[in-house]
Design a protein around this nucleic acid. Structure first.
Ligand SMILES: [Zn+2]
Ligand SMILES: [Zn+2]
Ligand SMILES: [Zn+2]
Ligand SMILES: [Zn+2]
Lengths: 154, 154
DNA sequence: TAGTAGATTATAATCATTATCATATCAAAA
DNA sequence: TTTTGATATGATAATGATTATAATCTACTA
């Protein structure tokens, strides 16, 4: 974790920004909740535990800054809020998501899976891909299980 | 066009809704601007030409209704507004998008391309896919051309 | 120490979307 | 034809997320 923060610090310095205490607190919250998909408000509430005096605007600014540096990705699942997702270190592309329409769970797919598709798109549409967003909507294994409970099988 | 409206009318009736004049005007605007990705406000302004007395709330309500019936898909490209995109008749899945980070153009990919990926996801993550959202961010052929204007070739 | 640039805070402003409620439409019942 | 009930609409208010503003604070440096 400390190593990860150090590297983010270096990234900030590389773009001539500083890792202020507020920014560090925000980054720590993101690292400690890597599995989740937090909204700015969520982050704000969690950061308040570490830095009670932080303002909401600072959280927004920090998240924007981290997005610019590609430390996090901003994503929108269709409820009215933006969510912020730590990008895996060294990952060229943003990971994919599985959103369950029954229970609302959001699972992640870290594998790329899109290499072939992207080759086709780059060639056929002459589009130079820099990043992508891929989200599947459907029924997760947990909810699927529930339905099958009293069906024997096929 | 009339045939398309008739079929949407039938879909509405099937769900026991009516095709009111306001709804018809809204659908016509969507059909006439099929290429575009209009926000609710955009649709409102265009519909006003046909039905000057229509209220913004009605447009929002109609778009919500059409989304529910899967006549349109609601999508968000990261600017603060939702956009509404007519689904091709008979298409099982939403189409894909190419968003140019230079000029802002949004192009469409009607081909599915994801069949293989979806098979993998369904099996490996035991996730029953109902729909998807796939957007590529990058540089479109138009902007790419601009850069190459004074570079000979490779 | 004073000056300066950047960062932060509290708060106001903005903007998209949703909720409210009185009115309108329309078809079926009386 | 009038009444009634269900649904739809329009004007407007309310909400909620995000951004802008202005005053204050915090390193650094001359
Ligand atoms: Zn689920
Ligand atoms: Zn994620
Ligand atoms: Zn372009
Ligand atoms: Zn589209």
């Amino acid at each position: 974790m400390e190593g990860r923060i150090d590297r983010i610090k270096k990234q900030l310095h590389g773009a001539s920004y500083k890792l202020t205490p507020q920014r560090e607190a925000t980054v720590r919250v993101l690292l400690e909740n890597e599995e989740d998909h937090l909204s700015a408000e969520d982050v704000y509430l969690l950061v308040k535990n570490k830095a009670p005096d932080i303002g909401l605007a600072t959280v927004y600014r920090t998240l924007e800054l981290l997005t610019e540096l590609k430390v996090v990705d901003k994503i929108n699942f269709g409820d009215g809020v933006s969510r912020y997702d730590l990008r895996q270190e060294g990952a060229a592309h943003f990971h994919h998501h599985l959103v369950c329409i029954e229970c609302g769970a959001v699972d992640e797919i870290q594998e790329d899976l899109l290499e072939d598709v992207e080759n086709v798109v780059e060639k056929r549409w002459k589009f130079q891909i820099k990043d992508h967003r891929l989200t599947f909507h459907g029924i997760c294994w947990r909810c699927h299980g529930k339905h099958d409970e009293n069906e024997s099988s096929d």
